[in-house]
Amino acid sequence: MKSLFCLSFILALALSGCKQPQPADAHASHQAMAPTATAVATNQPLSDMSLYNLSSEWQNQNGEPLTLPQLQGKVQLMAMIYTSCTYACPRIVADLRRIEESLDKYETGDVGIVLVTMDPENDTPEKLKAFAQENKLNPDRWTLLTSSEANIQELAVLLNMKYKNSGNGQIAHSNIISVLNAQGEIMHQQQGLGTDPDETVKSIEALLQAL
């Protein structure tokens, strides 16, 4: 009965609202979620400041569909790149690997790394996969994501990223590595390239102890 009520409530919302993506309310996101290994964590309602409140749909490097709440349950490092980028992106990946090395003792089930493309037009799942293989990124640790330009922009603004596609194959962008806790809230941000990862590592370790 309760679920029937819930369903009709959602239906009513969907009918009265607009067709465009809405911020997922707690019920809707749970309904839509595919069962995953992190099912336990996803039973908790998302906090107001969780990035996983975005209801957008994504694809990973294997071409599998994914929603952001599926990233729940682990500490996630998140950064934005594009694969045809020659200067900053290889360095940001290098920075992430440096952090990864210092977290060697932690399971891939506890810390994940997410790279989001800023160039969905060129970065198909296949390209992202090739990029991951070229850079020897451990698929258990690293998730590469693409979606529509609008969805990417929504995530980018929440990550405080500034970027501009000049249209000639170059994208001007800020370089930020964000540390998300298991619920998807930004706990720490490392700005710039070649930054000493000490503080970032410390913030991750603190989060892992709290897990």
């Binding site: 980018a156 501009k164 170059q170």
Partner: peptide, 24 residues
């Protein structure tokens, strides 16, 4: 505006190329 986050005012403008350069 839609892409309000596209202005890279923090860019190193003296290098005359904010594109794909370290932003400081």
């Amino acid at each position: 505006t839609q892409d309000f986050n596209s202005a890279l005012l923090i860019g190193e403008s003296r290098a005359n190329a904010s594109l794909d350069r370290q932003l400081f």
